[in-house]
Design a protein around this nucleic acid. Structure first.
Length: 736
RNA sequence: GACCGCCUAGCUCAGUUGGUAGAGCGCUUCGUUUACAUCGAAGAGGUCAGGGGUUCAAGUCCCUUGGCGGUCACCA
């Protein structure tokens, strides 16, 4: 054995050995218990960062541990096309070349994205292998694979059959940069110092006026009412009257609505149904007209009038305030802090706009998903997240699933002729409009793989597919059963429901909640029994690690090339606990590299004894008090580690091993045996090998390397109990 | 505003059902013969944020105050 453990030299070889032996591929054996983790598919739009390394480590720990415990373990790897995230990333690449997606056109853009993701996918898979991920590559899936897509579409058809799919006008958050609608979850809010402007709206045929307060004066051009609280005495006699909208000279009513807070501003609110979700709701209750003065490019529209058309919202705001001042409608302004929504992916300020979108009704699904956790069928670890989960489920809103993106799974929705497309869709897809400009048709909607040959209503034979794509979480939300080949495959029948979903707490709603809802809906069963949520990886300053700060960022591949995968893995798990963030530093990685080397050297010492030993039986441990004692101490940590692993306390288990091996085994026991080496050899070997087994899930490479080397030297034929297995990875887990 | 979490050694954090305060890194002193300097030996360093309560016993359970962070929410 070399004086130092050289991870770079050994790791690749060992991974190849495991893989070639087929250790990662489980057998489906009826009398063997199954254990399955479906890997959260990383977005195929870049390479893996330490956050990924963390989840890989945690899942690999579970997979290797359960495999050694004798279960038939499937850890299924995959990658996500990540619709919006990838489109944004790829468009940034294009922008560097001075191009937009429109320069490529939809088809070549899609093709280019596809190639981009395939390339990234290969890179990521290589990184997963470097990390030692014991996943079954023969079952690898991509969210756009034909079989996966098919299962996803079928779910949509079933939802449609169950009347859970509908298309409706709604105020949705619109990202002008991505030019797509977003779901509520895809909008992040930021507090901003702004102002509250007070504007006077004159009452028709009267000297009186009503003063409204607004944070967005530019939307006043689209006002179609003023609302007051019905209980507000100040305005009681104004309800039902008409005001003249300044600058536009439009007559709009004063309506009463409970939504208005008497205490805020003047207690009178301007209502712009087109550009505010609350106002839209008021508009629906009072049958108000929707006038869109801000377009999908975040500029003022024709409806805003010729003074403003084409201006950005900011320019329009300034101009409006000027004009209000000069015409005497401006009352005052106050400092005000309020929240603006930003696109989760590209950070552009979103615009609430009314548009026609597809939705899925969520109430029933949410109820069942909530119950599954309440009844304990699904356990969330750590438990405190259950409350967060219930909170969200109890206030669920319908899910806007249509995105005006090019990269993604196209909606399997067809319209008879151009008439079915919304104004928005026509504006965003001029090619499509041009191609079908002479089409007839009644706009009839068909949902399915292929439209009927002729429209049953009007007889027209040209159906046009909806140009929109699915929210990316619609496909990943079905991951546990779509990857396993629902409903007929052997895999599905054997491995579903899966054992544990290990993922980050930040996607509890985005993903975990959706998987539970869709899983129960489609399969009638929960998709997984346990949910283990890990925290974020932060840098030495407690900041979220990012590539823009290379001095503290830790790149998994670079780290592995210097310190080895085991060191990186252990550094992420050591001292960590579920749901809490982890700080990754070079020092910690070095510490773990030192630990790996420490065990290596202890083993080298034993290897040297082995070389000189004449007669000894591996399985025959002496009666010497030190030998008896070390076995006892080993046994006690074995019990603790088993109990910690059962409770998902990986950090704790690793700490115990660290101290047992370093302080107890090396510093105390090995020192005790130095003058009776041969006699102590069986005990030295026994405790070491069993400790290596316990450590293997955390540090698969060093432990396997040592095992292979000792076995080769001591018992190459595997005739002893201790070395009977060809590899540590498939040896039997020590448990009392 | 609601909910959740955090405040433990200089730094970063563990601490399972309440039972004598822990780790890593850093720091101090010493150590080059036989596994390992990616090491060894010895050591310093904490009223577990403040206050109150339950208990034979509280970092751990309850109440409360303060600071920090997160998530959710339609206040124009």
């Amino acid at each position: 054995m070399e004086k130092r453990f050289d991870p770079v030299k050994t790791e690749k070889e060992l991974y190849g050995f495991w893989e070639s032996q087929g250790y990662f591929t489980p057998e489906i054996e009826k009398n063997k218990e199954s254990y399955c983790i479906v890997m959260p598919p990383p977005n195929a739009n870049g390479s893996l960062h330490v956050g990924h390394a963390y989840f890989v480590t945690l899942q690999d720990i579970m997979a290797r541990w359960q495999r050694m415990k004798g279960k038939s373990v499937l850890w299924l790897p995959g990658a996500d096309h990540a619709s919006i995230a990838t489109q944004v990333t790829f468009e940034r690449e294009l922008a560097k070349k001075g191009k937009t997606r429109f320069d490529l056109g939809r088809e070549s853009f899609y093709r280019a994205c596809f190639e981009f993701t395939q390339k990234n996918k290969q890179k990521m898979y290589l990184q997963l292998k470097q990390l030692g991920a014991s996943c079954d590559w023969s079952r690898e899936k991509f969210t756009l694979d034909e079989d996966v897509t098919k299962i996803g579409y079928e779910t949509f058809y079933q939802l449609n059959k169950d009347n859970l799919v509908y298309r409706d006008w709604r105020s949705v958050s619109w990202c002008p940069r991505c030019s797509t609608a977003l779901s509520d979850l895809e909008v992040n809010y930021k507090e901003e110092d702004s102002k509250l402007w007070y504007i006077s709206y004159p009452l028709k045929g009267s000297e009186e006026n009503i003063i409204v307060a607004t944070t967005r004066p530019e939307t006043m051009l689209g006002d179609t009412a003023v609302a007051v609280n019905p209980k507000d005495k100040r305005y009681k006699n104004m309800i039902g009257k008409t005001v003249i909208l300044p600058l536009m000279n439009r007559e709009i009513p004063i309506v009463a609505d409970e939504m208005v807070d008497k205490e805020f501003g003047t207690g009178a609110v301007k209502i712009t149904p087109a550009h505010d979700p609350d106002d839209f709701a008021v508009g629906q209750r009072h049958n108000l007209e929707v006038i869109s003065v801000i377009g999908f490019d975040a500029k003022m529209t024709f409806e805003a009038g010729k003074d403003f058309e084409g201006l950005t919202t900011i320019d329009a705001r300034n101009k409006i305030i000027e004009m209000l001042k000069s015409k005497g409608y401006f009352v005052k302004e106050e400092k005000h802090r309020h929240r603006v929504g930003m696109c989760e992916r590209c950070k552009t300020i979103v615009e609430p706009l009314v548009s026609l979108q597809w939705f899925i009704k969520m109430n029933d699904m949410a109820k069942k998903a909530s119950d599954a956790v309440k009844k304990g069928e699904i356990k969330i670890i750590p438990k405190r997240f259950e409350k967060t989960y219930f909170n969200w489920m109890d206030n669920i809103r319908d899910w806007c699933i249509s995105r005006q993106l090019w990269w993604g799974q196209r909606l399997p929705i067809w319209y008879c002729g151009l008439k079915g497309l919304s104004q928005l869709q026509k504006a965003l897809n001029p090619d499509l409009v041009e191609k079908h400009k002479n089409s007839k048709g009644c706009g009839e909607v068909f949902i399915g793989d292929k439209p009927p040959g002729k429209c049953p209503k009007c007889g027209n034979d040209v159906y046009i597919q909806d140009p929109d794509t699915f929210d990316t979480w619609f496909s990943s939300g079905q991951w546990p059963y779509s990857t396993l080949g629902y409903p007929d495959s052997k895999d599905y029948k054997y491995f579903y429901p899966t054992s544990v979903m290990e993922t980050g707490y930040e996607i509890l709603f985005f993903w975990v909640a959706r998987m539970i809802m869709l899983g129960i809906y489609r399969t009638g069963k929960i998709p997984f029994k346990d949910v283990y949520l890990h925290g974020l990886i932060r840098d030495a300053f407690g900041q979220k690690m990012s590539k823009s700060k290379p001095e503290t960022a830790i790149d998994p591949t670079d780290t592995i090339n210097i310190y080895g995968a085991d060191a990186l893995r252990m550094s992420l798990v050591f001292g960590a606990s579920a749901g809490t963030d982890v700080i990754a530093t070079k020092e910690k990685i070095e510490g773990m590299r030192n630990f790996a080397n420490k065990i290596w050297n202890a083993s080298r010492f034993i290897s040297l004894i082995l070389k000189d030993a004449k007669k000894f039986e591996i399985d025959k441990i002496s009666n010497h008090k030190d030998d008896i004692s070390v076995l006892k101490r080993y046994k006690s940590i074995e019990v603790k580690i088993n109990s910690d692993l059962e409770k998902y306390r990986f950090g704790q288990a690793l700490e115990i091993l660290y101290h047992f091996l370093w302080d107890d085994y090396c510093s105390i026991y090995i020192e005790q045996t130095k003058d009776r080496r041969e006699e102590a050899l069986p005990a030295l070997l026994n405790v070491l090998v069993n400790s290596l087994k316990l450590l293997h899930p955390f540090a698969p490479f060093v432990t396997e390397a040592i095992y292979q080397s000792l076995r080769k030297q001591a018992d190459p034929k595997g005739s002893s109990e201790l070395f009977k297995d060809k590899a540590l990875m498939i040896s039997v887990w020590p448990s009392a």
